[in-house]
Simulated assay, not measured.
Amino acid sequence: MRVDLFDFALPPERIALHPAAPRDAARMLVLDGVGMHDRAVRDLPACLRAGDCLVFNDTRVIPAQLEGRRGEARIGATLHKREGPRRWRAFVRGAKRLRDGDTIDFGAGVLATSTARGEDGSWALDFAGDEPVELLLERAGRMPLPPYIAQKRGIEARDADDYQTMFANEPGAVAAPTAALHFTPALMAALAAAGIAHETLTLHVGAGTFLPVKADDTVDHRMHAEWGRIDAATADRLNAVRARGGRVIAVGTTSLRLLESATAEDRRIAPFEGDTAIFITPGYRFRAIDGLLTNFHLPRSTLFMLVSALMGVERMQAAYAHAIESEYRFYSYGDASLLLP
């Protein structure tokens, strides 16, 4: 499909620079079989049914933004995928100054060697020493805020908490599964009281999620792979939800993409561990999920293509036009949409 079908004009002032407070006070646009409704995230228990199950991503964002030097040259690196115990693939600012085997000093005693330049311009970075890389990043790294936030206001101390979900448990992501940022213990208690269950899986979100689609046609776009896991017990419980007549509702496109990667044509969810580079565009037949809670996405992005695959391009264009006119807040720290096809 032509990528320009997924374009729309977004006023810059609609981009949220901080999350709602409290988190579940964010607005929520509901699209279902009846129409379009303006609600709030804290209304979610009333928008779902007893027996439904929400699926969250429990990945934890690591401080994956690094600033360093190779000699006199300044080098910036955003880690996006682990390739070994001490090796991370990274998008590098100042990459033209790097050669294979160069040492980059990121400060605080953190050194890495550049190697294996990829076709996409990324570099593999091998971190020196014996300390776990996670500890090195805690010393030298910063939270990897999306560029559309970081370029407007910089990274603040509060982002260390604001950019983690309440489910964050498994370190490895370089971007938050932002739909889950809206959830609070009070909202989870209300959902449980309404008979709505929840499960967790792990998908370590990579920085590739922010890369623009440069191709003119979706068939020519290549997704970056991300590592994920669904254990056997979780898969069994989700299949049981369906067997009882409940719906599986993904919280975030990351949960959705991993669930779809793990599900066969017979709609049974299987255990999964490994990489996925699934790219969902209109025409895709969803097997694992019956709905999605997600934030509002960038024009021409793979994520807007995904929600258009779920609900239809024209319907999503109309919904986003309504959200812009109604002053919904967009992107990672913005408001939510509940999509129930």
Rank of each mutant, 00 (worst) to 15 (best):
D275E: 15
D275G: 10
T276M: 07
A277C: 09
I278H: 14
F279H: 13
F279E: 07
I280W: 12
I280Y: 12
I280T: 09
I280G: 15
T281G: 08
P282K: 09
G283H: 11
F286W: 13
F286G: 13
R287H: 09
R287G: 02
A288I: 01
I289T: 08
D290L: 06
D290M: 01
G291Y: 08
G291V: 06
L292G: 05
L292T: 04
L292V: 03
L292R: 01
L293S: 09
L293T: 02
N295V: 08
N295C: 13
N295Y: 06
F296C: 00
F296R: 05
L298T: 09
L298M: 12
P299R: 00
R300D: 11
S301F: 06
T302N: 03
T302V: 03
L303S: 06
L303E: 01
L303A: 08
F304W: 05
F304K: 05
F304H: 07
M305D: 12
M305H: 13
M305Y: 12
V307Y: 09
S308M: 11
L310A: 07
M311L: 10
M311R: 09
G312S: 07
G312Y: 10
G312L: 14
V313M: 03
V313E: 10
E314G: 10
E314C: 05
R315I: 03
Q317R: 13
Q317W: 06
Q317H: 13
A318C: 10
A319D: 04
A319I: 01
Y320E: 14
Y320H: 12
A321R: 10
A321F: 10
A321K: 07
H322L: 14
H322Y: 14
H322W: 10
H322F: 14
I324V: 14
I324S: 12
E325D: 13
E325H: 13
E325Q: 15
E325A: 15
S326I: 00
S326Y: 04
S326E: 14
Y328Q: 06
R329F: 00
R329A: 09
F330K: 00
Y331T: 02
S332N: 09
S332M: 09
S332E: 06
S332P: 04
Y333A: 11
Y333Q: 03
G334K: 00
G334C: 02
